[in-house]
């Protein structure tokens, strides 16, 4: 896949809730292997944008093409597309009635018809990667927030997605647990995963991002590489936002 053919192509997307414009003429391309970090004040539409990529939010107009398929076209199988888009949520959303191992194997076994033994082996490899092999038999309620989020990342990876979407993955965590989750995400980035991350972790953005997107009031205000974005932002609104949080 070359740069002319982005893996995610968002064109002129509008989304309103009643009279409120959550997304206002948003266009953004993400290339394969790229790490895009989206930041902005709360209510700026950054989470909404992320959730339109796998159609957890429907859009009012515009188009979103993922890996060559228009996700809002009734001809494309949204469930197949979603299987290629791993998603990590702010509130983890682990299946509470399943053990950690079963959380990881449920989708591969039911959707990809992966044999159980193979699915479990893959799951254990992923748990190793997030450092939670010893928690395989635990239930989500028995884990700390940080551990739950690491399991959630592993669960998303279990479907071998081409792209990972992160929706404020550390916002619900106690400060001492943020590090362990970011560490996993950094590793993932180093391995070349295409990532779109909505976050407030500026350190992570600076370290990992190829491109930082700043959103405000449903619009994309500025897109820039992290160095330029943080040290020399173009727009006034970006400057003001950075002054407030840094």
């Amino acid at each position: 896949m070359n740069a002319d053919n982005p893996i995610i192509s968002i064109q002129k997307v509008h989304k309103s809730f009643g009279t409120f414009k959550a997304l206002d003429d948003v266009s953004l391309n993400v290339d394969a292997g790229q790490k895009v970090v989206v930041i902005g004040p709360s209510g700026s539409g950054k989470s909404t944008l992320l959730r339109t990529i796998n159609r957890l939010e429907t859009i009012s107009s515009g188009s979103i093409v993922v890996d060559g398929r228009d996700i809002n076209d009734s001809a494309s199988d949204i469930n197949r597309i979603r299987a290629e888009l791993g998603m990590v949520f702010q509130s983890f959303n682990l299946f509470r009635h399943k053990s950690v191992l079963d959380n990881l194997t449920l989708a591969p076994i039911k959707l990809k018809k992966t044999p159980r033994a193979q699915a479990e082996q893959h799951a254990m490899e992923l748990l190793e990667k997030v450092g939670l092999v010893d928690k395989a038999e635990s239930y989500p309620v028995q884990l700390s927030g940080g551990q739950q989020q690491r399991v959630a990342i592993a669960r998303a990876l279990a479907m071998n997605p081409k792209i990972m979407l992160f929706d404020e993955p550390t916002s619900a965590l106690d400060p001492e647990m943020i590090g362990e989750v970011l560490e996993v995400m950094v590793t993932l980035a180093r391995e070349g995963m295409t990532m779109v991350v909505v976050t407030h972790e500026m350190g992570f953005a600076r370290e990992v991002a190829d491109s930082v997107v700043f959103m405000d009031e449903g619009k994309i205000v500025e897109v820039a590489p992290p160095d330029r974005f943080f040290d020399n932002p173009e727009h006034k609104r970006t400057q003001r936002f950075l002054e407030q949080i840094l």
Partner: peptide, 25 residues
């Protein structure tokens, strides 16, 4: 709702979500 969203994001359709995720809980 997060349970439904997590299930949908993995590629389960609505009825699979109901069957494997929501109803057991």
């Amino acid at each position: 709702d997060g349970q439904t969203e997590a299930s949908l994001s993995l590629g389960f359709n609505r009825s699979q979500t109901m069957r494997y995720v929501i109803l057991p809980q």
